[in-house]
Design a protein around this nucleic acid. Sequence first.
DNA 1: CTTATTATTATGTACATACATTATAACATT
DNA 2: AATGTTATAATGTATGTACATAATAATAAG
Lengths: 243, 243
Amino acid sequence: MRKYSIDHKSPIPLHAQAETLLRQLIQEEDYRNGKVLPNEVELAKKLAISRTTLRQSINKLVFEGLLVRKKRSGTRVAQNVVSSKSNNWLSFSQEMKLRGIPIKNFELHVTWVTPDEELAAFFEIKPDRKVLKLERVRGRPDEPFVYFVSYFHPRVGLTGEEDFKRPLYEMLEHEHSIIATLSKEEISAVAANDDIADKLRLPAGSPLLFRKRYVFDPGERAIEYNLGYYKASSFVYTVESTR
Amino acid sequence: MRKYSIDHKSPIPLHAQAETLLRQLIQEEDYRNGKVLPNEVELAKKLAISRTTLRQSINKLVFEGLLVRKKRSGTRVAQNVVSSKSNNWLSFSQEMKLRGIPIKNFELHVTWVTPDEELAAFFEIKPDRKVLKLERVRGRPDEPFVYFVSYFHPRVGLTGEEDFKRPLYEMLEHEHSIIATLSKEEISAVAANDDIADKLRLPAGSPLLFRKRYVFDPGERAIEYNLGYYKASSFVYTVESTR
DNA sequence: CTTATTATTATGTACATACATTATAACATT
DNA sequence: AATGTTATAATGTATGTACATAATAATAAG
């Protein structure tokens, strides 16, 4: 039985099926390490679709920078780790999906806490007003690679009973009509303390990329304050700027 | 006489010609204001290329977000052309000045080196062509906090005799007519190795913010490849992004 | 006059096919 | 052992064709 296959009866276009299939395929250890993909003619035959259709899907991934083609030698996975582009505002879930990496939630805690001074000031609320705190350890199925702590403004209207396994911004948009459009971020490096090292399964003292995000709605009103600790080896933040 | 046309004898692929042609076409007032482009079948006929080939070019522009397709109504220029690029284009010197912190150069080495494969590829030069390497350890008067390694494209025309204590981009602009306008950056965290730890007066293994910059001129030609290792405690990278 | 129905017209999907180009490997030559 | 030549195996380019789908326009029905 073949691992990946395409359903010719499905209403989903073949090239779209091939696309998601490729996204999964390139998660495999071998390909990730530079093994060339099956050549187009062969692969098309195996999937029982035409080469043109297959190329349509490959092209898309090439455009996205996930695959690199080379004449004669073949097509392989581009050699870069998960990155975040500041231009196209993607959430963690979206980004992982784009790369065909399944997300695993290793930990998820929801609590109501009293904000510290800084947070109360950012949210412009009284210090005794409780806010929702969401802690998550997420990553690919085999390893956690980020520890998030989020605080939400009471205005958002979260109860704490929501399903936080779903994409967060999707939920905010649909169920709470909250649209996040502006984010101010600060990025620095820190050493993992015992607690975080444990969560991310790292030796204490390992370097982490630390990202603080202040998220706003279109009226520049504060929505979320987010702290992210990324395992350095599997995360790169990319920025493109012009002047 | 037709305004735009395609040369079937040119060595440039038809779809590439069609692409540049489209890019010109959509500069026209009418299209920019929302007029639909000629439909694919017609346009293909006019340009004397197949619809498939034409679609190849259109697809590229659609992917770049320049064109928007709509069934039945046709294809037109996307209306949201305002790009939301981050504006943090500041050089180290400018940034320090802005904060009123005097700069001290702790180390400064200039050498000519043979580029490694990656660098030669980025600069698009032969691997035996030597490039100028500039290493600097800089910081505030009392403590170093960044270790830079820069490589410059030979095209820039640096001799190695210049005064590298001056603001670099100012010098490039005035003395070499090189204007850096685009920079692509990758930010991650690493642990300090012995060498760098020593330069920055830190214990080995301390977390550092590691910033790779690819700097380009207005023609998107590579100018500089820069590696920066920042002492985590004294450097934060900020980004603002909208969607 | 409003609401279905149908036709039209654009893009969307998919295939089979042919030949060009180019990086590499295999081989032959000096 | 270095250099030149040829084969080959992958992607790259390009065409022609067919039918599907969806939004709109035109028309018919109530």
